[in-house]
Design a protein around this nucleic acid. Structure first.
Length: 575
RNA sequence: GCGCCCGUAGCUCAGCCGGAUAGAGCAACGGAUUUCUAAUCCGUCGGUCGGGUGUUCGAGUCACCCCGGGCGCGCCA
């Protein structure tokens, strides 16, 4: 724990405290909440406290509201609060309070964002590619969502361990090894290792579906591998290494990093122990020669048993995931484990979490699901030939398309700048398109939409930042040293209010794991900034307004930069 | 058959624990530029929130039923 203790309050928390004080004075319990106003006509914040209390106590909500307002001491923050509608209390912030708060945030490295009250150690499990298979478009959401959540949790003061649970031990290795021994072309392997591994895997798969003898041979290779056969282990090691190299390149392009990359094979020597322990404790039992966990007293899972050891003695992915839970809790001391894994595995994780609870684990398990990425035809996104779209190709195309726009809009930039900016815009566009939408909804992938300069897109937000940087380049100053902001124009007040909201928005994301809330906020911030930019000249205005506006620019730039960084998106200086 | 997720403007999507007259963007149309990057801004048009019943001061949001789409349901991961 750090020593610094007093975090900056937001308007929301300040008003909530004042409301609580007023309720106490009237002899009422805390109730309702202070929320941003649903409509600008109602001011900036509102509370439904009187409505909630009125219902609880069978009293007239408007009368209650009047009583509460009489005791509300908010003169330092807002205009006299008003009772409206069925009994809402509305708060309108005073410009001087906004100016004061904005100045405070201007001096704060955390931009006003408080750390979480309860700091946890959180393992975030995301990405999870399979060895011997190239990453494809289906991996985007897990990677981008998991990375953003990890960044946000970390910023809020949690200790985050990013773990890549690589699929490096599945049954596909029987086929890969068979292919390696029978079909491998060494030259192709040198040229493009992963492509060659994928080729032999696919080829073997084809043969195996046609020919039972090949199928049996693959099974034998797998048995040998799992028994520790030297030759097969060597082949396996080589395949894993080639795949990891490929993954690393993609992670570098995406600016994603891991603290741990414990693949399935990491847990091999723990599987037998897990099954033994579960049998011993009675959580699992033997059924039809397999080891199974039944959930007879759980209506949801009553008819959905979970096999943890197959009839043939082999372990499956449930076993591995249970061993993974053990490791994360006992060895890594995780308070929470977040699984950023697609929705089809919901049942599987329900079973795993339930088994973990039965074993006495009390950690906070979360399965963070997400929808699918669809093509223009509204079906799962595929290439024309029906294959998965390789992630590498997708990222390359994003940068290529971004580059084309840069060449059109800003041809005089240096080649080095263009490459750098195309990367930031292209990758940013893909990430933002994903994160700006509610994670559960399936979305239709569209280059045109995500790279558009208009609307809720990464380039639009990046452009707001670029405009700010441009002002500072022109001014020849890095930031202003001003203490007190002067807010008179509507656009200035509006922008300052937005800047104050950053601290209210960021913690909300983790409520239900919705980075789209932050994305949406940043879009509105960029919007407010652009409006301000149009309405309020900065460098041409007279002092002290000039310094004040420069300070607004500075803070806008910092919030945009930091907010996008929390989403894993970089900002260029020019574009 | 059972279970989970989704259904909001022509299109793509917001709308967390129920709050006031349901919001953006795109598209369409009309304006603004001797620019601090117009890669922008301002305005207009656009809705029986899939349908129904219920819960209550109040339902896009909660409950139940139906319709439509997706996914899952002992030895794949």
């Amino acid at each position: 724990m750090q020593t610094c203790a007093t975090f900056m309050q937001t308007f929301q928390t300040l008003l909530a405290k004042k409301l609580s004080d007023a309720l106490a004075k009237v002899g009422l319990p805390d109730a309702g909440e202070v929320t941003p106003a649903t409509d600008p006509r109602f001011g900036d914040y509102q509370t439904n406290a009187a409505l909630v209390l009125g219902k609880q106590r069978g009293e007239n909500p408007r009368a209650l509201a009047e009583k509460i307002v009489a005791r509300l001491d908010v003169a330092d923050l807002c205009e006299p609060p008003a009772v409206a509608g069925a009994g809402f209390i509305n708060f309108t912030l005073r410009p001087d309070a906004i100016a004061k708060k904005t100045s405070e945030i201007l001096r704060d490295k955390r931009l006003g964002v408080a750390e979480a009250e309860l700091n946890q150690r959180i393992v975030v499990d995301f990405g999870s590619p399979n060895v011997a298979k190239p990453m494809h478009v289906g991996h985007i959401r897990s990677i981008v969502l998991g990375d953003a959540l990890a960044r946000i949790a970390q910023f809020l003061g949690h200790e985050v361990i990013r773990d890549n649970h690589i699929g490096d031990w599945g049954t596909q290795f029987g086929m890969v090894i068979y292919g390696w021994k029978n079909l491998l072309d060494r030259q192709s392997l040198r040229r493009d290792p992963l492509a060659e591994i994928v080729r032999i895997y696919k080829e073997t798969n084809d043969r195996a579906t046609r020919d039972p003898q090949v199928r049996e041979a693959c099974r034998q290779e797998l048995v040998k591998l799992q028994a520790g056969d030297k030759e097969n282990i060597d082949i396996w090691n080589e395949c894993v290494a080639f795949s990891m190299q490929d993954f690393e390149q993609i992670y570098e392009g995406l600016d994603v990093r891991y603290d741990l990359q414990c693949g399935e094979s990491f847990y091999n020597d723990r599987l037998a122990g897990v099954v033994e322990r579960l049998l011993k404790s009675g959580v699992a039992e033997i059924s039809e020669d397999a080891v199974v966990v039944f959930f007879r007293d759980n209506p949801e899972l009553a008819d959905k048993p979970c096999i943890i050891r197959k009839r043939d003695g082999g372990f499956n992915y449930a076993t591995t995931d249970l061993a993974t839970v053990d490791y994360r809790i006992n060895d890594l001391k995780a308070d929470a484990i977040w699984y950023v894994v697609g929705a089809p595995q919901t049942l599987h994780f329900k079973q795993i979490f339930e088994i973990a609870r039965r074993e006495g684990y009390r950690s906070d398990f979360r399965h963070i699901t997400f929808g699918s990425i669809l093509g223009e035809d509204r079906k799962l996104m595929k290439t024309r030939s029906g294959e998965n779209v390789p992630l590498r190709d997708l990222l390359e195309e994003a940068c290529k398309r971004a580059r084309k726009i840069i060449d059109e809009k800003n041809p005089d930039l240096s080649e080095a700048d263009k490459i750098d900016i195309a990367q930031k815009i292209g990758i940013g566009a893909i990430k933002y398109f994903d994160l700006s939408q509610y994670r559960m909804t399936d979305y239709i992938f569209s280059w045109e939409r995500m790279l558009s300069l208009h609307g809720n897109t990464a380039p639009y937000l990046q452009n707001a930042y670029v405009r700010i940087r441009s002002i500072f380049r022109k001014a020849g100053e890095s930031a202003s040293k001003i203490d007190t902001l002067i807010l008179s124009d509507f656009a200035e007040i509006n922008l300052a209010k937005r800047l104050c909201q950053f601290a209210e928005i960021v913690p909300q994301v983790l409520n239900d794991f919705r980075p789209n809330i932050l994305a949406n906020y940043l879009f509105e911030l960029a919007n407010s900034f652009h409006t301000f930019y149009e309405a309020c000249p900065v460098l041409k205005s007279e002092e002290p307004v000039r310094s004040s506006r420069l300070a607004l620019c500075d803070l806008s730039g910092r919030v945009l930069q930091h907010g996008l960084d929390l989403l894993g998106i970089k900002v260029p200086e020019k574009m």
